[in-house]
């Protein structure tokens, strides 16, 4: 019974920890489906995190209320900031044809600096450190879905999360439907697989690449906001994203570019990141625990590279810019 409890609580924590990964992974899948390999997710999450927190904090200051208004402000600001980060990437790689790898890495460096810089500025403004009020914290806290949450095992597993967990799940489902069941999704996949062919078929490659990258960035921004508002409970912590952006890029590979498979893979990795708190193994130092997600990542990378299949491969043009005149 005790073991079962540990496992159930662990799964619950895994879903909570996996939700930001799921948001960022969905965003990155959308981006990569357009053929843009954006390595800057870490930076985008940082930008979303600080924008979301700043949005909530300023909304509290201006309107003098906590709760829903700061929540909406946080979502809006984080999404827009994520979109801006995606736009920077799209302008540089699509229009100005810069190297995708280096642009992504620069975005990671820039975004991290951006988050830390404005986090500290905001701290000065708040005379010490930034923290949102209890009411705002509460709307990002776990909502218990009525009586359902009281059900023994099922309640903990399905009905004891904050709203963003359900939101992330909906995004993943919508994304899966969009990519595989709609005309526009088909066009987007065509752009990622073979931009030349898509262009000949009359698809506006540039527009698809831009929109996918910008919206994908917005989702990464929301993932970052989750880190700041839920994981850190609305307090600015300099290391709040701490590698989750990079994990999201790995999860894209692990879930083989499918938002639906991203659901369980983000829960697995979420579980690994919180394992040290939930599954005590006597004598194992915490630092070794903390290595688990990263070691698992390497194993995943190696295994997926060994058994490459045509069906589950990355979009063929990922990482390469499209030169129309060289078609």
């Amino acid at each position: 019974m005790n073991v079962l409890n540990i496992i159930i609580n662990w799964l619950n924590a895994a879903v909570l920890a996996g939700a930001p990964l799921l948001l960022a992974t969905s965003g990155e899948i959308l981006t990569e489906k357009s053929g843009n390999l954006n390595l800057g997710v870490e930076g985008q999450m940082y930008m979303g995190a600080i924008a979301g927190l700043a949005g909530a904090w300023f909304a509290e200051q201006w309107f003098g209320v906590g709760g829903m208004i700061p929540l909406l402000a946080a979502v809006l600001f984080a999404f827009i900031m994520g979109c801006i980060s995606g736009l920077i990437y799209a302008v540089l790689t699509v229009t100005l044809r810069a190297n995708q790898n280096v642009t992504g890495l620069t975005l990671a460096i820039f975004g991290t600096g951006f988050g830390k810089f404005f986090g500290e500025v905001l701290g000065h403004k708040a005379h010490g450190y930034v923290a949102v009020g209890a009411e705002t914290k509460a709307v990002f806290g776990n909502i218990s879905v009525g009586k359902l949450a009281e059900l023994p095992v099922v309640g903990t597993l399905f009905f004891k999360y904050n709203w963003m967990v359900y939101f992330a799940l909906i995004i993943a489902f919508v994304m899966g439907w969009f990519l595989n069941r709609t005309r526009k999704g088909l066009s987007l996949r065509a752009v990622g697989e073979s931009p030349g062919t898509a262009d000949s078929a009359g698809i506006n490659v540039t527009r698809y690449k831009y929109i996918a990258t910008v919206v994908g960035g917005g989702l990464c921004g929301l993932g970052g906001m989750y880190m700041a508002m839920v994981n850190q409970k609305g307090i600015w912590v300099t290391e709040c994203v701490s590698g989750y952006g990079w994990l999201a890029i790995v999860l894209v590979i692990f879930s083989t570019w499918s938002p639906l498979r991203a659901i369980y893979s983000s829960i697995i990795f979420g579980g690994l990141t919180v394992m040290y708190m939930r599954v005590p193994i006597p004598g194992l130092p915490r630092a070794i625990y903390m290595m688990f997600p990263f070691i698992a990542t390497i194993i995943v990378l190696i295994i997926t590279s060994i058994r490459q299949s045509k069906e589950h491969a990355q979009p063929a043009s990922t990482g390469l810019n499209y030169y129309r005149e060289e078609r």
Binding site: G43, T106, I109, G113, F114, K116, F117
Partner: peptide, 8 residues
Amino acid sequence: SAAELLTG
């Protein structure tokens, strides 16, 4: 962190 920002 202005350094990182400017470098980026």
